[in-house]
Design a protein around this nucleic acid. Sequence first.
DNA 1: GTCCGTGCAAAGCGTTTGCAGCTTA
DNA 2: TAAGCTGCAAACGCTTTGCACGGAC
Lengths: 135, 135
Amino acid sequence: MDKLHQLLSSRGHRITKARERVFNALNTAEKPLSTTDIIALCPTADRVSVYRTIELFSHLGIIKLIPVGWKQQYELTSLFKSHHHHMFCTKCKKLIDIHSDDFENFVAKLASTYQFTPLDHTFEMRGLCQKCQKQ
Amino acid sequence: MDKLHQLLSSRGHRITKARERVFNALNTAEKPLSTTDIIALCPTADRVSVYRTIELFSHLGIIKLIPVGWKQQYELTSLFKSHHHHMFCTKCKKLIDIHSDDFENFVAKLASTYQFTPLDHTFEMRGLCQKCQKQ
DNA sequence: GTCCGTGCAAAGCGTTTGCAGCTTA
DNA sequence: TAAGCTGCAAACGCTTTGCACGGAC
């Protein structure tokens, strides 16, 4: 939260209740949220403020848009949460975090073979989790 | 096109002009398209038919939704196009195809360490292409 | 001829824009 | 105090739904 205040101030933006609420929603949810989810989790903030906050946070690199299942959802970036990816179980809809340094290294190598300077990437698997494949 | 007709028939769906048009739009575009793009490329088909066709094609595994830049777009699946991923240059907006067997093998290995049965995956890089990083 | 799919109309949402008033620094 | 933000109202555009006609098989 201090880090959020610091980031907002340093970029010349004000600290407001609406912004704190949106941040809290994403921070406590511990899973990616859709715009609709965020609006629902911030009942005291106007939808319009939520939309504007989402746009601001995206530009500041506080949150990022990722594909989950077949929907787009927002999640805190690695500034506030360690960089990772997801596996989505299409049966039980569970979302499993993937943390793999090997994967990150592989991506870096792949980019260099294409002489591409990577800024960011998106990776998500869909399939069956351990439990569901047994059934 | 024959393959499309065959797939539609085998699943009990009819071959119509609207469906051929949507398929052609995606097949000739050689790049992912948004719903709006597809509607614009199929002026003789009603938007509603385009939406319904997109839904049908998704269910039949003819097309899939992928994140490009910060937007969702549709692309023909590996049934009609070889499996690949993309690098999106945030400066010149160019989209570069990535074909890497090593990457696919890595993903398979990653899934198995998590005891996850992968059905499909999404991977996209954002960054700067060779030309743009020189400037 | 039968049923599926299309096209039109209209409703339904999610998202954006304009503006006055309040809050933050 | 001055500028930035919020909240409300309303516009906007994408997507969905209902229904009668037309086309595919």
